[in-house]
């Protein structure tokens, strides 16, 4: 299990990195934390001709507050930095709750926030999180830069809206809306494994206590992070009674997801877990939105 050969570049500035991306494009892979990429290369399931290592670009490793009250996370910020960030705990409690579910301490010490987003593993938590909170991805190339909404960024199995010469350099997390509540629920075979199913929920209650904006995103049940729009429609404008939540969860399982079967779980079991976890997440998120301790 030794990786195939490749040409290696370790730019020390973003400009240099973008130049390399422009030169090598399709044949190049960005090396961020490497916690998925290098394992894949060791299995010889990936054989990029060129690796462009972003680890020597300090400006990509930041966590900053935004003017809108959210946070900006640099792409090369390690998971552990996000996990331990006081700013994240305050401004993005859903993310704070998500981080301990990502693999194990050693992986979080090396793996990066932007790497996980750009890798777009359908079983990974962060892409689902980003959809739930309507995060935005900053893609940069020699041609310029653009912000991509999370809903537009993840387009399929391990694939994103990035052009071959683009690099994810940062992720923007909006502020938590007023009267909002969140919940993260995950089931995995073992502690730290990729999720069988996980759900990231963020919702807002209006002044009357009816559901306003409901964002329910799943991982492990599709080709990418799946946003449960049918379930959200059930909740929209409704007071979140147990019956309504139950109905929404059932719709999420029946209409919103089309899970695959693998050695760990059948499609039927995953669908069932979507129902169970949706119910639990919605219940907890609604309680938080209503100001209750969860």
């Amino acid at each position: 299990m030794k990786p195939p050969p490749f040409a290696y570049h370790a730019p020390t500035t973003l400009d240099e990195a973008l130049q390399l991306m422009a030169e090598h494009g399709y044949g190049a892979k960005v090396l961020a934390g490497g916690q998925s990429l290098i394992a894949t290369m060791n299995f010889r399931l990936a054989a990029p001709a060129v690796l462009i290592d972003l680890n020597k670009i300090p400006e990509l490793s930041i966590i900053q507050p935004t003017a809108e009250g959210g946070a900006l996370v640099g792409a090369m910020t390690r998971h552990v930095q996000v996990e331990q960030s006081e700013l994240i705990a305050r401004t993005a409690p859903l993310l704070h709750a998500t981080m301990p579910h990502i693999a194990h301490p050693q992986i979080r010490n090396r793996g990066t926030f932007g790497g996980s987003i750009a890798h777009a593993d359908p079983a990974a938590e962060l892409p689902a999180f980003l959809r739930a909170v309507r995060g935005q991805v900053l893609a940069q190339s020699r041609r310029g830069q653009r912000w991509i909404d999370a809903d537009d960024f993840f387009i399929g199995l391990f694939s994103t809206a990035l052009e071959p010469d683009e690099i994810v350099t940062a992720v923007r997390l909006p502020a938590m809306p007023a009267r909002s509540g969140w919940s993260m629920q995950e089931l995995s075979r073992r502690h730290g494994d990729f999720a069988l199913v996980a759900v990231e929920a963020l919702l807002t209650l209006d002044a009357d206590g009816a559901c306003d904006d409901v964002r329910l995103a799943f991982c492990g049940v599709g080709e990418g992070p799946v946003l449960a729009t049918a379930a959200a429609a059930v909740l929209q404008g409704q007071r979140p009674t147990a019956e309504v939540i139950e109905a929404a969860a059932a719709i999420a399982a029946s209409d919103d997801v089309d899970p695959h079967s693998d050695v760990h779980a059948t499609s039927a079991y995953r669908r069932h877990l979507v129902d169970v976890l949706a119910k639990r997440a919605l219940t907890a998120a609604c309680a938080r939105a209503a100001g209750e301790e969860v």
């Binding site: 490497g34 916690q35 290098i38 290592d53 680890n55 050693q106 010490n109 090396r110």
Partner: peptide, 19 residues
């Protein structure tokens, strides 16, 4: 294969020596 890399515990099989 866990080692300390700049003080942090990481897996040395998921890094290249050049890094």
């Amino acid at each position: 294969c866990t080692i300390l890399f700049d003080g942090a515990a990481v897996r040395s099989c998921l890094m290249f020596a050049v890094q």
